[in-house]
Design a protein around this nucleic acid. Sequence first.
DNA 1: CGGTTTATTGACCTGGCTCAATATGTGTGG
DNA 2: CCACACATATTGAGCCAGGTCAATAAACCG
Lengths: 252, 252
Amino acid sequence: MPHQNRADLQVFLDRLNLRSRLRLDEQQAVLNLPAYAAQVDANADHVALGEMTEFASLVVTGVLGRFGQNAQGDRQITALHVPGDMANLQSVVEPKATSALQALSRTKILKIPHQALQSASARHPALAEALWRDCMVDAAILSQWVVNIGRRDAAGRIAHLLCETAMRQGVRQIGAVSFDFPLTQNQIADATGMTSVHVNRTLKTLRSVVTLAGRSVQVHDWTELVRQADFDAAYLQRDIGSGGKLRIATGD
Amino acid sequence: MPHQNRADLQVFLDRLNLRSRLRLDEQQAVLNLPAYAAQVDANADHVALGEMTEFASLVVTGVLGRFGQNAQGDRQITALHVPGDMANLQSVVEPKATSALQALSRTKILKIPHQALQSASARHPALAEALWRDCMVDAAILSQWVVNIGRRDAAGRIAHLLCETAMRQGVRQIGAVSFDFPLTQNQIADATGMTSVHVNRTLKTLRSVVTLAGRSVQVHDWTELVRQADFDAAYLQRDIGSGGKLRIATGD
DNA sequence: CGGTTTATTGACCTGGCTCAATATGTGTGG
DNA sequence: CCACACATATTGAGCCAGGTCAATAAACCG
């Protein structure tokens, strides 16, 4: 069973390698992790609020969202997880879910037992560190969302969300770009603290810069989108070496 | 020098013990951490954006804020750090600051070298885990801030901020409560994505429930404040045992 | 006591929300 | 391949929570 999942685990390893320097045996430990494929339908809960989890979930295809809500039941998406993301890596250390995880479109995931991650981490301190570091990038993203929702106007919020999602999916070139983005306008509203009506109107004003087509985004002018978004990718730490020391576990 | 700092490190250890089960030798390792006292004036940067840090900073007295801003220079506070908090624990694993850290009032901190935290973590995997777990609680708080700013009205936002800060400072009783809160209305505005004018007006409507006096908060009706805030403390994980397994590092 | 923050209030404005109708997809079973 | 059922997108009209601008008043700090 683990065998056909190796290609998917490689995606996760690639992600870790983006920000951490791992030895070959450590990399091998990642590829040898047991993993169980699962599918989640659009709008179905994958992890419920308060649930005790025993797995971390690697997103293979589709998108997972982390949800919060207020007393009136208005929903707020607090995080998006695209393919290659370990959606609830933090659960390894804090298994009780403090927010629900739901699929925004049909999503294929790979469940990796906490126990396996824990024992691999115990055997390879540098791996524990790499996992911790990846969690911290997620936290930096969260921090940007606070700024986005707190201090940007409608166009800026949507533009920023699109820039971030593009970069996280590995979009590199500038100019015209297209990438996967299976969110409805309602879900975009929930992610940006807006209303679907206003998302619709704002997208109209952004038409010359970006358009949503089906389940993907067409960026017509990346530079302008970045300007509108006031976007600086530094916080995503996708550039190895940008963070200085990437291997601190010395095992001394 | 480390000697007179032991009492302060004890505060940090108490914090860790809230959420993790540490052996005596692991606790001792925390208390033996080298630490250098420092002071930061109100509104002075403690860590600048993009700076490479070599220390984590334990807040002893005062309050530290994490700042972001948009293209127009409007500031947004993304996190508050009260006494007992390790303000930038994540820097151990990601030394390049993705946001600035500034004192909101005169603040006394204890600088703990990354190197010391790293070698203690290498020697005691359970300690590494405890540090990682504490970072994850900070992330859960961040997640709540997104909901707060995205989906609550002015009164709810302020009430929630006050409830959270009270609980994090260890406020326990219900009914009338008072606690330290040295923020200006301007800083409250920056933390809630509002305007200081509107913070002022909103506080007026909350007068029967809570008032700000000098550098502290007087809660007249805790139950009502919690109701207004739509506050549920579960995410703070202050209740040991609430999270299930608190010691996963087995060293096997 | 003088200078500088911080708080408070008024008057007015606007970005984004609400409510509600209509159009356009999209997936399903026959 | 069609037609229905349901989800999603689009648009109009009107409103309001919270913003802006600007002037005082308090409070704080040496």
